[in-house]
Amino acid sequence: MFGKSVANYRKVNALSDIDAAYIAGLIDGEGTVSLLRKHKQDNRQVVVSISNTDRPLINYLLEAIGAGKATGKRTYSERHTPSFTYAITNRHALDLLRQVAPHLRTYKARRTELLLADYIRLTPRNGRYSLAGALERAAFIEAFFAIEP
């Protein structure tokens, strides 16, 4: 492989039905299913996140799912409990949502259904949109955010 490094891409693990249901409960209760931008000029991407003050729970998510990342949140007062966030993005997030979708019970189930049905079709890998594609994606994003609690 003449000087090229081999990327070690993580894959989302196949979850047992029990783990999928548990993680769906965490997403419904303390998580988000959203379309976010990393930077102002970027296109929106799928993000699933779960925040909690229990670091072992966040570690469980990392281990069970096999992809994503955990970050700590800054505390500004000694009275505040340190909290942590697990986040998974893009196609990894879609892989996770595919597995937990049957167990979601809140408005996040409807958002997940919309994402799984249309996100890949409306998101070219090169990020270049035709005018018609851009308009269809804009309508998709509007419909996604119209699904509220």
Rank of each mutant, 00 (worst) to 15 (best):
L35F: 06
Y76R: 07
L35P: 05
I65G: 00
E78W: 14
A21G: 06
E63D: 13
A20E: 01
L97V: 01
Y119L: 05
R137S: 07
Y86T: 00
G72S: 12
E30M: 15
K73L: 13
G133A: 03
D118F: 05
G68S: 06
L104V: 01
L116G: 02
E30A: 13
I27R: 00
T85M: 12
S83F: 06
R111V: 09
I27Y: 01
A64N: 06
V47A: 09
F144L: 08
R128W: 08
T81I: 11
D95K: 01
A67K: 04
R79S: 15
G3N: 10
G31S: 00
A14G: 11
I65E: 01
F145S: 04
I18Y: 11
E30K: 15
L57R: 07
G3W: 09
A143F: 12
Y60N: 08
F144R: 02
G127S: 02
L94T: 04
K108I: 07
R121E: 03
V100L: 07
E148D: 14
A64D: 02
F140T: 02
L15N: 05
N59T: 08
G127L: 03
I88C: 08
S5I: 10
E63K: 10
P82M: 08
G29H: 08
F84N: 07
H80C: 14
G3C: 09
L114N: 02
G25N: 07
A64C: 08
S49H: 04
N59F: 09
M1T: 08
V6I: 15
S5N: 10
Q45R: 12
L104P: 01
T106P: 11
R137A: 03
G66E: 00
I18Q: 15
K73N: 12
H39E: 10
L115H: 00
Q41W: 14
P124S: 03
T71H: 10
D28P: 00
K11E: 07
F140Q: 03
L35W: 05
I141A: 05
N8H: 12
I141E: 07
E30D: 14
A67P: 02
P102R: 00
S130C: 04
N43S: 14
R79C: 15
K40G: 15
M1N: 12
L97C: 00
R125F: 11
P149S: 12
A138S: 10
A143L: 11
K11Q: 08
S16L: 04
V12Y: 02
S16R: 08
V46S: 00
R111Y: 05
D54F: 11
R79M: 14
N8S: 12
L104A: 01
L94E: 01
A146K: 12
R74E: 11
A93L: 05
G66F: 02
A143R: 13
E78L: 15
T112V: 06
P102L: 01
R10P: 11
Y119C: 03
G25I: 04
A64V: 09
A109G: 01
F144K: 06
T71N: 10
E148N: 14
E30S: 14
A109N: 01
I50E: 04
S51R: 10
L57E: 07
I88F: 06
H80T: 15
V6N: 14
I88T: 02
